[in-house]
């Protein structure tokens, strides 16, 4: 799902650092517009890049509105539906949602939206913490090919892809290299 090796011969650039910055700033604006009670919003990032993207969105919200919205981490590995079918297990990380979710709006944040299975697992995980008023979804890139009835509320970039292509996201904080999004063709 998220690999970092870059095959330079067939790599097609999709977003550079500036495009990512503008996209996330726009997502922050949309979150502000859609949620008049901004203090009720919680950004729950899916490790590892979703956590960083949530942090950046929160920092844009702070710049724009001077309000600090809470952020947390929602790990989905132990809620996936494919445990026992993979030779390699997803690494599980601790979730951190250290506040009651009742009455809150939880915005799930991830880098790429693809089949929707990760988001389903994230919703399942959030419900084990409590019952939020609503759950929304923010992604940096929506690449299509949904396998579940899931649709994002905030999208940095819509990018129609072929299922054989691999969409790669790299962020300075998680990958130690400049921000970039690119497509790799098989």
């Amino acid at each position: 799902m998220k690999q970092t090796k870059q095959n330079s011969s067939a790599a097609v650039p999709v977003m550079d650092a500036e495009a990512i910055r503008r996209a996330l700033r726009r997502v922050a604006h949309e979150i502000i517009e859609r949620n008049p009670q901004l203090e009720k919003v919680v950004l729950a990032g899916i490790p590892s890049r979703g956590v960083e993207i949530a942090r950046r969105i929160a920092s844009f919200v702070h710049q724009i509105e001077k309000i600090d919205i809470e952020t947390g981490v929602i790990d989905v590995a132990m809620h996936r539906d494919d445990v026992g079918t993979r030779r390699e297990l997803p690494v599980v990380r601790a979730s951190k949602l250290p506040f009651p979710l009742e009455g809150r709006t939880v915005v799930i944040v991830d880098d790429v939206l693809y089949t929707g299975r990760t988001v389903r697992a994230a919703m399942d995980a959030i419900n084990s913490f409590g019952r939020p008023a609503r759950i929304q979804l923010a992604v940096l890139v929506d690449r299509g090919h949904r396998e579940l009835p899931i649709r994002p509320d905030y999208v940095g970039k819509n990018l129609p892809t072929a299922s054989g292509e691999q969409l790669q996201v790299r962020l300075q904080e998680t990958d130690n290299k400049p921000d970039a999004v690119w497509l790799e063709r098989e």
């Binding site: 590995a77 132990m78 809620h79 601790a94 399942d124 995980a125 419900n127 084990s128 913490f129």
Partner: peptide
């Protein structure tokens, strides 16, 4: 961390 959740059970 799962032990601190409201629902202390995961479907893993």
């Amino acid at each position: 961390q799962v032990g601190t959740r409201e629902i202390k059970k995961v479907p893993a």
